[in-house]
Design a protein around this nucleic acid. Structure first.
Lengths: 199, 199
DNA sequence: AATAATTATGACATAATGTCATTGGAGTGA
DNA sequence: TCACTCCAATGACATTATGTCATAATTATT
């Protein structure tokens, strides 16, 4: 995940390389992108690239992490603000993500990311077990939830995140408005909140 | 999706090629697999391969479809057998898939498929909007469901399939027993059936 | 037997990957 | 000032892959 050599570089050079890589990942999926295009654009020799990163994947996930760092933080904040209300916290998180991925500067980059989404990329992008999810679930108010133990919160979070990801992909696949897209997300959230079977 | 030339081939030759390809996709992900290995194993010249398939992806999805054809059919059958009961139908489908993907001959192949799962592959593998899902949702009994229109069934099916896929991936990621895995799936299904919030 | 249609073949042009030996330069200590 | 150390920079290279294409071989059709 970015070798020390890269991190030692002057910031403007780092930025030049990351910009070139982001440009390439805006043009093509991870599968179709090439190191050649990145180094040409960033004006660095081929050997240097491999001094900085293991390979394409390495820089791909490095850049993605830069863009998703605040998403992971936002969830904890929401849980505090909404007093452990999990559904509200995730709906707010979704709106936050939606604004972020459809911002002028990032839209085409994210379009490419989401149209080629795989499970590994998803794990990098959303809060997950490997990072701070364990701390996060401590913040959830489970009194109103239909579970026997805090452990089962994992199931709920996974379901919610699956729903979020699917709806995000729809943004770029269909040409729905942001409003309509959020409307559907909220409908689905309520569906699993109250149950898909009638009370 | 497999050119006519391939389909004209004698069946044993077709099979030889498909076997070689499946072997390669058991060894490596779509990203890491190579045409070279397939043609070496199948003992056909390079040119022939490209007479039969557009490229690696082409044969990858062709093989996957062979293995998922009956899964898609099974869902309709279940809906008939279970009189439109959607949750029961999907739980049965899950058990059917689980047996299939962990069968002696297919286990390592599917392990590779699932550990490298992406959304495109998922759409190929599970019943989806593009194929007969529209007919399928006609079979669902929506009287007990918490929706206003049959259209919204799509949301429910998507949520259920997302849950299924995540649990299938777990089979190969963690080393859970099949029994424990199904137990968790059923728990999650009941969770969304009754709602994640207490009644 | 002649001709048409289809399939088989492997050499080739092209492009990509990751490595490595060497060069260059900045900082340090004597 | 010099020698030395430590990184960073560099691009040629071996290797491996892709997809194409002209031609040969085989099979079908008349």
């Amino acid at each position: 995940m970015a070798k020390q050599t890269f991190l030692n570089l002057p910031l403007d050079k780092q930025e030049r390389i990351l910009d070139a890589a982001k440009k390439e990942f805006t043009r093509a999926s991870l599968k179709d992108a090439s190191v050649a295009n990145i180094i040409k654009d960033a004006k660095i020799p081929r050997g240097s690239f491999y001094q900085y990163f293991d390979d394409l994947e390495d820089i791909y996930y490095y850049i993605l992490e830069i863009h998703s760092k605040d998403i992971k933080q936002r969830l904890s904040k929401n849980l505090v603000n909404y007093k452990g209300e999990i559904i509200k916290s995730f709906i707010d998180l979704y709106q936050y993500i939606l604004i972020k991925v459809s911002s002028e500067e990032n839209e085409l980059y994210f379009k490419n990311i989401f149209l080629n989404m795989d499970y590994k990329t998803e794990r990098m992008f959303l809060p997950n077990l490997e990072d701070n999810l364990n701390e996060i679930i401590q913040l959830v108010d489970i009194d109103k939830l239909n579970i026997d133990s805090r452990l089962q919160l994992i199931y709920i979070v996974e379901i919610i995140e699956a729903i979020m990801m699917r709806n995000l992909i729809q943004v770029f696949q269909r040409n729905l408005s942001k409003e309509k897209n959020i409307e559907i997300l909220i409908k689905e959230m309520l569906l699993i909140k109250d149950g898909i079977y009638k009370r």
